[in-house]
Computed example of a mutant assay.
Amino acid sequence: MKINDSKILEKLKKGDSKAFKELFDLYYLPLSTYSLKYCDSFSLAEDIVQDLFIKIWNDRLYMKFDKNIGSYLFKAVKNNTLQQIKKKYNFVGIEDYVNNLMVEEAVDNEYLEEKRNRLHMQIEALPKKSKEVFKAIVLDNLKYKEAALEFGITVNTVKTHYTRALKQLRNAVEIIIIFFFI
């Protein structure tokens, strides 16, 4: 278990809502992205992750995490996503559905290049500050605090710009996901 995770969990068990927000901020996007490996809807993926976080908040006093919270979250998201797919397809052919999703991820280079160009165009079309913040966080892998220092703005302003960029790029999320998993 990461030291940061264990501190967050200790605070969470005491009912600290800031710790919950920290956990949410740390894992929300990676979990949503992971869920998309198994389902074909970003909206469904978000719902699954949000439901998991609601369950964690509601059960925080009774939950015991002896292992890595990250592993638990990713396994729960995978299981919950597959359950939703089973419900959607009435338990018929779920293995075929999941296998088809995996096969569909195998795309040719020309298709990837086209999607990469489209993604870059959409990133470049973002407002200047949102684009800078997005690139710093996603491409340069900076933390919010580091980006705030680099641009001379507050952490909340960084989060605002990053959120705006993600909202505008949400239409291109399938493109982003392709590049995360290739």
Rank of each mutant, 00 (worst) to 15 (best):
K2I: 10
N4R: 06
K7C: 02
I8G: 02
I8W: 04
L9W: 15
K11C: 13
G15N: 11
A19C: 14
F20Y: 14
L23I: 04
L23S: 01
L23G: 02
D25T: 05
Y27N: 14
Y27I: 09
L29R: 13
P30H: 02
T33D: 03
S35Y: 08
K37D: 11
S41A: 15
A45Q: 03
E46S: 14
L52T: 11
W57I: 09
R60L: 08
R60G: 05
R60C: 07
L61F: 15
M63Y: 10
I69L: 15
I69D: 03
S71W: 01
N80D: 09
N90C: 12
E95H: 09
N100H: 07
N100T: 06
E105A: 04
E110I: 13
E114L: 10
R116Y: 14
M121C: 02
M121Y: 02
M121L: 02
L126R: 07
P127T: 00
E132R: 04
A136C: 12
A136S: 13
V138T: 09
D140G: 01
L142F: 14
L149A: 03
L149F: 07
F151Y: 09
G152S: 10
K159N: 01
T163S: 04
R164G: 14
R170E: 03
F179K: 00
F181C: 02
